[in-house]
């Protein structure tokens, strides 16, 4: 019973996570500029990685393996936004202009 449930979690996690990883990579290719591509990379870093690692946690042979997988989740949880911010800030400081509406039009709305 528990084994069947764990198998379902494994399947859902690995296939669902794989789908999110592919969608994130597809966005990396499709989206128009570097800032919007960061959102796509964010999908891979959050939902894709979480689902796959949780699916593997459900399939791990002992609890130590599961704990290590959880540590990878925690590590990605903290490092991914930091490096994305560093990249966005570097691109902004480097003078890359985002496509779309400009900042003034947006700030008058809010």
């Amino acid at each position: 019973m528990i084994q069947a449930a764990l198998n379902i979690v494994g399947w859902v996690g690995l296939v669902g996570g794989g789908a999110f990883v592919i969608v994130g990579a597809l966005g990396l290719v499709r989206l128009p500029d570097v800032y919007s591509r960061m959102h796509a990379a964010g999908i891979t870093d959050t939902m894709g990685a979480w689902l796959m690692l949780v699916g593997m946690m459900a399939q791990s042979p002992d609890w130590l393996t599961a704990v290590k997988l959880f540590l990878i989740i925690v590590l990605i949880f903290f490092t991914s936004p930091t490096s994305t911010y560093a990249l966005a800030n570097a691109a902004y400081g480097g003078g890359v202009k985002p496509v779309g509406r400009d900042e003034e039009g947006a700030s008058s709305n809010s």
């Binding site: 990883v21 990579a25 990396l28 960061m38 870093d45 796959m52 690692l53 991914s80 990249l87 480097g94």
Partner: peptide, 21 residues
């Protein structure tokens, strides 16, 4: 741009972590 490439490499790195696991 350079930043696109760095972003792609960063994303590639995350996928490598998943791949190794």
């Amino acid at each position: 741009s350079l930043y696109d490439r760095v972003l792609a490499v960063n994303s590639f790195g995350t996928k490598t972590v998943l791949m190794i696991a």
